[in-house]
Amino acid sequence: MPEQAEGTAGSPTNEVRDFLRRRREQIAQRWADEPLFRAVFTVSRDEAVEAGKAVVDALAQVADAARVEDPDAAGFTSVREQLARMGAARSRAGLSTAQVSSELAALRQPVENLLVADLPDASAEHARDCVTTLSVLMGTLRVVVMQTALSEGQALIDRQRLQLLEVATPVIKLWDGIVAVPLIGTLDSARSQVVMETLLESIVEQQARYAILDITGVPTVDSLVAQHLMKTVAAARLMGAECIVSGIRPAIAQTMVHLGLDLGTVVTRASLADALGYVLHQLGVGIVNPVANGPVTR
């Protein structure tokens, strides 16, 4: 930039940018002593300083792009993850959103002091403009952290939803080498994925040669559900296990026929008991029924 004298640089934004780049080390050093950085980076002070430098660099980049008011500015991208971690760490420590916000606000003062000290020769108006620009920039930083904190909250909800899915999908060992999953409720794509993964994992764990998918508790079987069942059966087969689908209620069987759904080569049985009987027979295990005085396996 031509004709740019020390202390009286062009626009306030450029001034702030140059200041951030010049005072990077000092700002990071001061931030490292602030509660926010001290509480998050507990391993070493150097770690806090490094993190501080990254934030200063991001702020300088945002100022360079003249987007001090834009929380979506590209400059923030590189530190978004770090800021999210910092915000999350403070939330986990039991701080309210307002408390995190005020810890963030506390980062402004040390920077502002340095900036004012750097502008002894500037006109009052220019100095004020620069301080205002810095305030806006620091405010935007706060917005960025709060945004990521909120999305962290959303991520938490998503994680819990996923955990709920896993809880709702128990895999039961019925016999040596036989596992079963009783499916209850609607099977959407997310749930089917979890069912498939849990079942296949348990096939490996239990070295189960047979897996029974019981759909007695599934209210409807549309083409999507049928497709998921077929995929699970195919994946199990690739691993060396046979999957049996049981519990296809008459009403569902009717709908499936109406819809033209075909489970293809998949072995199906009316009930879980029938499926178990089939598998035991395959394994060569016979059970003697004392009442009927004969084997019930089929």
Binding site: D158, L162, S189, A190, Q193, S223, L224, Q227
Partner: peptide, 9 residues
């Protein structure tokens, strides 16, 4: 990350 796979339809 964490998004369900697309159904084939």
């Amino acid at each position: 990350v964490g998004r369900a796979p697309r159904p084939r339809e």
